[in-house]
C-alpha cells in the first residue's frame, strides 16, 4: 500500500508573540517543529506499512529550511520525502495550499497510486483545519476527519472512528481516501538508530513551480481568496480583584461566597434542585 503523509513545519506556537509596538509576529528565535498532529499521522502510516507492507511518502510545502523537518520525519522510517518549495508558493491561503499539495499528489499518484493520505487535524500555526479537506476534495478522495482510531484497513476500504462533539462515529470509506488525525490515534515511538543514520544522509527531493504543470494563478498571495488584513494581540480580559488567601483561607472563602451570592453570580437554586444534571 502507498501511504502519503502531509507534513508541515511550524513554529512552536507557545513561544510566538505579537510585538505590541509594530503589531507584527515576533518569530525570531522561535524553534520550528513538525506539526504535532502530522507526527501522529506519520506514526500511523509507518505502523500500517509495517503491518501491511508498502511505502510511506512524505510531502511538505514550505521554505528550504523545512528540509530539516523532512529529514527528522525520515528518521521514523519513511521511504521518500518531497519538499514543495518555491517563492511562488509563499503567501498561499488554505485554498491555494491545498491546490499546490494536491497537484503534487496527483503527480505522485500517476506513477505510484496512492491508497491513503494522512493530514493533521490542523496545523498549530494557521490552525484552519482546511488544508486536509481541501486536498481530498481536489483529488476526489473521500475524507474522514478527526480520526482517533483506524479500525480496519483492507485493499479497498478503510474504517475509522472519528470524534465529534456529540459522540464517536464509525465510518467506512472506499480507498483511496484521506484522513485527518487527532493525537489520540497513537503514541509516537522513538526513532531507531539505523533509521536515524539513514535519515541523516537523506536529501529530500525539492519540487519547484517548474517541476509540475502548476497554474500560477491559483497560488501565492494573488491566487488566494483570503488575505490577512490585520494582526493584533488578543484583547486581554481586564483583571479583576486579587485576594490574599494565604493568611485566613476560611475568612476569604466566606467573603468570596458572600459576594458571589450577593451579585447573583451563583444563585441558590442549583442545590435546591439537587444539581443540574
Amino acid at each position: 500500500m502507498h501511504f502519503v503523509v502531509c507534513l508541515k513545519q511550524v513554529p512552536d506556537t507557545s513561544e510566538v508573540r505579537i510585538d505590541p509596538n509594530t503589531n507584527t509576529l515576533m518569530r525570531e528565535g522561535v524553534p520550528s517543529i513538525i506539526n504535532p498532529y502530522d507526527a501522529h499521522g506519520l506514526e500511523e502510516a509507518i505502523r500500517l506499512k509495517e503491518k501491511a507492507g508498502g511505502k510511506v511518502t512524505i510531502v511538505s510545502m514550505g521554505p528550504p529550511q523545512a528540509k530539516e523537518a523532512l529529514k527528522k520525519a525520515m528518521s521514523f522510517g519513511a521511504d521518500r520525502a518531497i519538499l514543495l518549495s518555491d517563492r511562488a508558493f509563499g503567501g498561499s491561503d488554505s485554498l491555494a495550499t491545498a491546490y499546490i499539495i494536491s497537484t503534487a499528489l496527483k503527480k505522485i499518484h500517476e506513477t505510484e497510486p496512492i491508497d491513503l493520505v494522512f493530514a493533521g487535524k490542523e496545523a498549530i500555526d494557521g490552525d484552519t483545519a482546511q488544508t486536509g479537506p481541501g486536498i481530498a476534495q481536489r483529488l476526489g478522495f473521500p475524507q474522514l476527519t478527526y480520526a482517533i482510531k483506524i479500525k480496519e484497513l483492507t485493499d479497498t476500504s478503510i474504517t475509522v472512528e472519528r470524534k465529534t462533539e456529540s459522540g464517536r462515529q464509525i465510518v467506512q470509506a472506499q480507498l483511496p481516501a484521506l484522513i485527518t488525525v487527532e493525537k489520540e490515534l497513537n503514541d509516537i515511538r522513538y526513532a531507531s538508530l539505523p533509521n536515524m543514520m539513514n535519515a541523516a544522509a537523506y536529501e529530500p527531493e525539492v519540487w519547484t513551480v517548474d517541476s509540475l504543470p502548476f497554474d500560477l494563478k491559483q497560488m501565492g498571495l494573488k491566487g488566494s481568496p483570503t488575505s490577512v488584513s490585520r494582526i493584533f494581540a488578543p484583547p486581554g480580559r481586564s483583571g479583576g480583584e486579587i485576594m490574599d488567601g494565604t493568611k485566613d483561607p476560611a475568612g476569604i472563602a466566606a467573603s468570596v461566597v458572600q459576594k458571589l451570592l450577593q451579585q447573583n453570580v451563583i444563585m441558590v437554586h442549583p442545590l435546591m434542585k439537587g444539581g443540574k444534571h
Binding site: 486581554g236 486579587i242 488567601g245 476569604i252 461566597v257
Partner: peptide, 28 residues
Amino acid sequence: LKVANYGIVGDLFQIVPALTAEFKKRLQ
C-alpha cells in the same frame, strides 16, 4: 489570575474545602 474576576492567591488545599463548606452552609 490576570483573566479572573476573583483571583484568590493561596493554597488550594485550604481554599477549596473552605469554599465548599461555605457554599454548603449558605446554599443549604
